[in-house]
Every structure is written in C-alpha cells, then in structure tokens.
C-alpha cells in the first residue's frame, strides 16, 4: 500500500493519473474520440515528433541537448525531394538520406566531444545551418512528384489500419525502453548524465558514448523527416519548422531532467500519450491552437515544480 502510494507520488504516477483522466474526459465528451480512425490519426498527426522524442530522451538523460532535430527532419525531407527530382530512384534515395542524417549527427558530435563546445551552442548552429541547406536544396518551391508506393507508405495502413510510421514508433519506443532501462549502454547513459567526470574516472569512454547518441539522434531525425515527406506527399523548405521545441517539451514533460541523469522511457511514453490525447481532445472540442499551447505550457511548468515539491516534503519528513 505504502509502496503504491509512493509510486503515485512520483511524476510517472501523476502522469498516469492525468492521462487516464484526459482519456476518460475525451471519451465522455466527444463521441468520435474513441474510434479506431481517430486513435490512429491522433498518433499519425504527430508521429514524426514522437519518434524523435525517443532519441531525444537518451540525449537529455545524457545531459546534452539536440536542437537541430527539427531542421534535420526538414533537411532530410528536402534532400529526398531533391534527389528524387534529380532522377535518383526513391528506393536509393532513402538510404542516402539516412546517411545524411548520420553525417549531420556526427558533425554535431565532433564539435561537442572533440572541440568541447556545449551541445546547446553546436546544435543551435546546426539548427540554423541544416535549415539553410534544406531551403537551398528546394529553392523555396514545393516538390510533390514522389512515387506512388512512397506516398502510400505514409498515408495508408501497412498492417491492417496501422501505417508504417506507427509501427516504426512502437518498435523504437520498446527498444528504447529496453536499451535505457535494462542494458549497460543505458546505465552508462545515466552515469554520464549524472556526472561526466565520475564516469570518466570509472573508465567510461564518454566521448564515444555521446558520439553514438548524436549520430543516432541525427539518423532518427532523418528517418522522421522521410516519414513526414511520405505522410504529406510533398516537401518544401519549412518542413518540420519549430518541431524541436515540441519534441523537447514532450521529453521534459515526461519527467526527464534537463540537467541529465534522471528520467525514463516510460515517462516519455506517458508524456506522449498525454500531449497527443490532450491536443486531440481539445481540437475535437474546437479549442484554438493558442489555448492548446497554453495548456501544454502550464503542464510543463507543473512537471518542473511538482517533483521538487514532493522531494522537499520527503526531506522534511526525513529530517526529524
């Protein structure tokens, strides 16, 4: 009983309660909410963001940040459009674009781990740089002439009603959870995130670890960019503009500490459920985007304050 109470007091417990409340509330108020079509749409509309959120969880637990993911998604989508327009078969363009993602991640990693610059600065620079490259590639035009099979992958169900992107996300988040919570790689991510110097003394190659994370982040962002291009069947320079903030918001709302070392994939998963259900419910009730953004903002503030309050209470209880 006590253990259960303690669990409820954790941020994950709080999130679970809020998610259940939001889902029940939406179901009661909007008849279309609990339909298969809407539930798939709900994920599908933000699927690229939540895919990148999985990689971002690792990066932030590692006490780093990757601001360039939105621009990398845009660059990947535009590079794909450009390659297809140049006559490269779409099937060959896909691995090339994923390589661009890996290279972009490696570029970030080089300046962070070898030159020793803060990731905030490096990825802010590539946020601007990747976006610029994307705009140069498509020259402010839209590109729409993708092969049919590519559009179908993004817009139709692959297994039953479930589209490819949803399946990719499900696999990624399960794999991400196992990797973070149950492997040595995951433990090293926490240790480095908590205290990099201690990790160094413990013999962990922290630079190599961070390189892997940033390359993975870039590659997954490129994959998400490709999925976006397939879903909307068109690309232009502003694809995924500003997505990095939504992605980071989801991860922080899930209880991952911006200072590193704290957070779980389950927290991120709960946060994804909360944000998507909340937005979808509000949209179905015709609540405007401004208010939706405001509600998410209030939740984000709560995500910082509530764990601190419960921590303080625990300290007070322990003190006498």
């Amino acid at each position: 009983m006590r253990a259960m109470l303690a669990r409820l007091q954790s941020w994950e417990g709080f999130l679970t309660c809020v998610v259940i409340f939001v889902i029940l509330y939406n179901t009661a108020l909007t008849p279309q909410f609990m339909t298969m079509g809407n539930q798939i749409n709900l994920f599908q509309l933000s699927i690229e963001k939540v895919i990148v959120a999985v990689a971002m969880t690792f990066v932030i637990v590692n006490a780093e940040i990757d601001l360039s993911v939105g621009s990398m998604m845009g660059l990947a989508a535009c590079a794909f459009g450009w390659l297809v327009q140049q006559g490269v078969p779409a099937g060959a363009a896909i691995p090339l674009v994923l390589l661009i993602g890996a290279a972009g991640g490696a570029f970030n990693a080089y300046f962070i781990t070898r030159v020793g610059l803060p990731s905030l600065v490096v990825t802010l620079a590539t946020l601007i740089g990747f976006r610029g490259l994307a705009r140069v590639l498509v020259e402010d035009r839209g590109i729409t002439d993708f092969p049919d099979w590519f559009d179908r992958l993004g817009q139709q169900g692959l297994i039953g009603p479930f589209p490819l992107s949803l399946i990719v996300f499900a696999l990624l988040i399960v794999a991400g959870h196992v990797l973070l919570a149950h492997t040595g790689f995951g433990r090293r991510t926490y240790v480095i995130g908590t205290n990099r110097e201690v990790a160094e003394y413990a013999g962990i190659d922290t630079a190599r670890h961070k390189q892997i994370l940033f390359v993975a982040s870039g590659t997954i962002a490129a994959l998400a960019g490709l999925l976006y291009a397939a879903r909307v069947g068109a690309v232009r320079g502003d694809v995924a503009f500003g997505f990095e903030l939504d992605i980071i918001t989801i991860v922080l709302l899930g209880g991952v500490s911006i200072f590193g070392g704290v957070g779980t994939m389950i927290g991120t998963a709960l946060s994804i459920l909360l944000v998507l259900n909340l937005r979808n419910g509000m949209a179905l009730m015709n609540i405007t985007g401004h208010i939706q953004t405001g509600v998410i903002g209030v939740l984000l503030i709560a995500s910082v304050i509530v764990p601190r309050l419960s921590l303080r209470r625990r300290r007070q209880e322990a003190a006498p």
Binding site: Q32, G37, V232, N280, A283
Partner: peptide, 23 residues
C-alpha cells in the same frame, strides 16, 4: 483531419500548406 473526424459537412480552407495538405 480533425474536421474530417468530426464529420463536418464542409471545410473552407485558405491554404498555407502548399500540396502538403492534399492527402
């Protein structure tokens, strides 16, 4: 997409999304 889910009879759109809105 939300309007489609709500089953509204008509959407009147001033398009800013280029062909990305087409699907």
């Amino acid at each position: 997409t939300t309007a489609t889910t709500q089953g509204v009879a008509a959407v009147m759109l001033s398009n800013n999304a280029g062909d990305q809105i087409a699907p």
